[in-house]
Amino acid sequence: MSPYIRVVKGSKIYRSRRGDVHALEDIDLEIRDSEFLSIVGPSGCGKSTLMRCVAGLAPISSGEIWLKGSRVDGPAQDLGVVFQRDLLLDWRTVLDNVLLATEFRGTRNAATEARAVALLEKVGLGAFVNRYPWELSGGMRQRCAICRALVTDPPVLLMDEPFGALDALTRDDLNSELQNVWLESRKTVLFITHGISEAVFLSDRVAVMSAKPGRILKIIPVALPRPRPLSIRDSVEFISITGQIRQVLAQAGAIKG
């Protein structure tokens, strides 16, 4: 398995009058093809900055980011992004929201529309295709946002705390749905979260970050069999991994051990 996303000595410095802020410092990270990798860390550790840099939405100050074979130096084309807020357009129906990217690329046609409907049906929104976002609950809206990111069938999915604003039960639902979608499509996923349990449940590997400066402390593999039921979170193996992550964060002073 070759690395699909590669960050080499990536640093991001925000210059301000009070001095430089090292949002990211010497990040080295490789995400393999079809791998699900999560980044966990305290808020303000630069994990969202890292995602924005990988997506090409913000330039890094030094170092390099590679997507497949090409260096990232602007908004990358073949990836889907899911943000913490669903960012659905109020004036478009669910279906038209999902098809937004195809309209920007001029590829909206019967085939992409059929794909969009199939995606929506897969996440249980088949009956809501022609509804408007304000008719949907928070969980349904975020499902719609995931379909929107997947509609062009990009090989890479970047997710920035996509379930952070949802209640715990809805979050569980979406975690297990996301796993199913991933198992079917095997996309390369970079998943940003501050939920340790969520990260372990979904990921092949979890990168633990510290704040100020934003550094990767340790990368912990999750060798649990898939598909994983939600109940796996009560297993000894699972708890030992979340314990390891908490320990790394505590040693760095990010959380109180």
Binding site: G56, P75, V81, F83, L87, L89, L100, A101, R105
Partner: peptide
Amino acid sequence: DPELLDLARSMGAR
């Protein structure tokens, strides 16, 4: 919303 702009740019919008 600036995030909406990010979303559009990530979709390759002109």
